[in-house]
Simulated assay, not measured.
Amino acid sequence: MGVDDRDEVYLQDFEEDDLVYFTTHQGIAANLDLGRVILFDKRAFGWVSEKIALADLRRVETISTTPGSEGYFAVGDGLHRVGASIGVAIKDSIAKAKARREAGLVLHLRSVDTPVFFIHEPDNSRHASLCEAFRQLFEGEMRRPFHVVPPEVERAFVAPTPAEIAAQEVRDAENEVRRRVTSVSGRQIKGLTVVALGVPIAFAIYQAITSTAPFRLGDSIAGIAVGAFFIFLLGFFGLWFLNGLFYRPSAKQTDGRPPA
């Protein structure tokens, strides 16, 4: 979820946090005063975020490219107690198997949705700095804020201006109106159903009257069903096409611009 139950999280929401660390595909922001952590994960459609309490960050396992330097920072009685261990056994899981292959940090969380979160950091120097930042975070006092945010990530989280928000609202409203107007209405569907059934039934009656062949009820019903189906299908897409063809947004829907 987003900060303060918003769907969106912006740079201003976490830029002054105690610990802010982003790679190109993952990120974390932690704030001691607010007692919260925001996890960021980049998907195909953009960044998604999840907010959890800082106390729900159970421990952080460190996986280094330097042999024998693995360990973890664990929360004991509150955030001020630190545990550490060298060569901790890592249980089998997708995230932890990946962590063994790629240096980084594995965050263990008290969360059903995200019990394990992996941050990839193969550079030994940055890895050591990030580990020290987490150590200070668990001690409950950061000597100074620790921020690593690539410029492209900063740009992705810049809040839109009021003008951009207003323009997007106009576009959303126009798209919603277009969707309602161009969709086939219930009244049109009822009329189409009458036509789709009426035409093959009328044709079947005409054939029964004029044909010299013996009348077969089963064949007539099958013919009516097939004819009604294709007439309804063609009519439905025809109405949808015509609704879109004759749709013109009003000046109000286009924010005063002439309709396209």
Rank of each mutant, 00 (worst) to 15 (best):
Met1Ala: 15
Gly2His: 05
Asp5Ile: 01
Asp5Tyr: 07
Arg6Trp: 15
Tyr10Ser: 02
Tyr10Phe: 07
Gln12Trp: 11
Glu16Asp: 11
Asp18Gly: 05
Leu19Glu: 06
Phe22Pro: 00
Gln26Ser: 04
Ala30Asn: 03
Ile38Val: 15
Phe40Asp: 00
Phe40Ile: 03
Arg43Phe: 11
Lys51Val: 06
Ile52Arg: 04
Leu54Arg: 00
Ala55Ile: 05
Asp56Asn: 12
Arg58Ser: 13
Glu61Ala: 08
Glu61Arg: 07
Ile63Gln: 02
Ser64Ile: 03
Ser64Lys: 07
Pro67Tyr: 10
Gly68Val: 03
Gly71Pro: 02
Gly71Lys: 03
Gly71Ser: 10
Tyr72Trp: 08
Phe73Lys: 01
Val75Asp: 00
Asp77Gln: 14
Arg81Ala: 13
Val82Gln: 13
Ser85Tyr: 09
Ser85Gly: 10
Val88Leu: 12
Lys96Asn: 06
Lys96Phe: 02
Ala97Asn: 15
Ala97Thr: 14
Lys98Asp: 05
Lys98Gln: 14
Leu105Tyr: 03
Leu107Val: 06
Val112Asn: 12
Asp113Lys: 11
Thr114Ser: 05
Pro115His: 06
Phe117Tyr: 04
Pro122Lys: 12
Pro122Thr: 10
Pro122His: 15
Asp123Gly: 09
Ser125Val: 15
Ser125Phe: 13
Arg126Trp: 14
Arg126Val: 14
Arg126Tyr: 12
His127Arg: 04
Ser129Tyr: 10
Ser129Ile: 04
Cys131His: 06
Cys131Thr: 09
Ala133Asn: 01
Phe134Glu: 00
Leu137Thr: 00
Glu141Asn: 08
Met142Phe: 06
Arg143Thr: 12
His147Lys: 11
Val148Pro: 00
Pro150Thr: 05
Pro151Gln: 11
Ala156Cys: 14
Ala159Asn: 04
Pro160Met: 03
Thr161Ser: 09
Pro162Asn: 08
Ala163Cys: 05
Ala163Phe: 02
Ile165His: 05
Gln168Pro: 13
Arg171Gly: 03
Glu174Trp: 01
Asn175Ser: 15
Glu176Phe: 07
Glu176Lys: 13
Arg178Tyr: 11
Arg179Ser: 01
Arg179Asn: 01
Arg180Asn: 15
Val181Lys: 02
Thr182Glu: 09
Thr182Gln: 09
Ser183Leu: 07
Lys190Tyr: 12
Gly191Leu: 12
Gly191Glu: 09
Leu192Glu: 01
Thr193Ser: 13
Val194Trp: 05
Val199Pro: 04
Pro200Thr: 14
Ala202Met: 15
Phe203Cys: 13
Tyr206His: 11
Gln207Lys: 09
Ile209Glu: 14
Thr210Leu: 13
Arg216Leu: 09
Gly223Gln: 02
Ile224Cys: 04
Ala225Tyr: 04
Ala225Trp: 11
Val226Phe: 08
Gly227Met: 08
Ile231Met: 06
Phe232Leu: 08
Phe232Asp: 09
Gly235Asn: 05
Phe236Arg: 00
Phe237Lys: 13
Gly238Lys: 14
Leu239Val: 01
Leu242Pro: 10
Gly244Glu: 15
Gly244Phe: 07
Pro249Tyr: 03
Pro249Val: 00
Ser250Glu: 07
Pro258Met: 09
Ala260Phe: 03
